[in-house]
Amino acid sequence: MATSQRRRPGRPAGRSDTRERILASARQLFARNGIHKTSVRAVAAAAGVDPALVHHYYGTKERLFAAAVRIPIDPMQIIGPLREAPVEELGYTLLSTLLPIWDSEMGAGLIATLRSILAGSEVNLLRSFIQEVIAVEVGSRVDNPPGSGIIRIQFVASQLMGVVMARYILELEPFKSLPAEQITRTIAPNVQRYLTGEVPEWPAP
């Protein structure tokens, strides 16, 4: 005789299905509302689960975001060193953190994810990550004169996207084969200038 089993609240049957519904809900809410305006509670409600289950599977909201956009790395691996580095070393710290990750086996997954995002409909997610996470974590430290932090971060993003394009997508030689440390030391001063040097005035929005 079949017996019914009581389930804990917020734990629908099918672990894989539940996780996919959480990710689908997170992806939709992050794209629509941005990262800061999307709470774990809102994601849980959209997925029909208890918020504790979202934390159980993904831990922090940053890890949930990484899973939602299929980034195979905890964003805190990048944000952590940037929080601790002196402002005058941010350019070098950023590149010396990113390039070894991009050059690793994990980096292949990151580049594939980036290709997918840029070619698909999830570019809003990448924009949110740059403007709501990186700009907040780093831009607030280099916001001098006031209001310049966001444009500084966007200049840095343009430089980093150029590195990704030349080294990993177009695979231009000899740039592709240069040691990561050589690229870091060559480009870091320019990135640091974007972060702490003079920036041109631009029209107020």
Results as ranks from 00 to 15, higher is better:
T184S: 14
L178K: 10
Q77L: 10
I183V: 15
M1I: 08
I183D: 10
E137S: 11
R193Q: 13
G109W: 08
A66K: 08
T3G: 04
M161R: 09
G48Y: 08
R19S: 11
P146R: 09
V136R: 05
M161I: 14
S148I: 00
L195N: 08
S177F: 03
L29S: 07
E171M: 13
R167K: 13
L170S: 14
Y168S: 05
Q131H: 13
D74A: 10
E122P: 02
P179S: 08
V163I: 15
F65R: 00
E198K: 14
G107R: 15
P174A: 10
W102G: 00
G139D: 13
P146Y: 06
L118C: 04
R141E: 15
L90Q: 06
M1D: 11
W102R: 03
A67R: 13
I183G: 03
R127D: 10
T113K: 10
G59M: 07
T184Q: 09
P81F: 01
T186G: 10
R127K: 07
D74Q: 07
A135G: 05
E20S: 11
H55A: 12
A85W: 03
T184W: 02
R8Y: 12
P100R: 11
A135P: 02
E201G: 08
L160M: 10
Q182P: 01
I169L: 13
V163P: 03
D143A: 08
A13M: 05
I187R: 02
A13S: 14
A68K: 01
K37L: 09
L99F: 13
A204L: 15
G162T: 14
A68Y: 07
E137F: 01
Y194Q: 15
P205R: 03
G139S: 04
G147H: 09
A47S: 13
P205E: 07
D50R: 07
E20T: 11
K61E: 15
S140E: 15
I150K: 04
S16D: 15
Q159W: 00
D103I: 04
P100H: 14
V69L: 13
V87W: 09
I183M: 04
L82A: 13
E137C: 03
D74Y: 06
G34L: 02
L82P: 09
A2N: 06
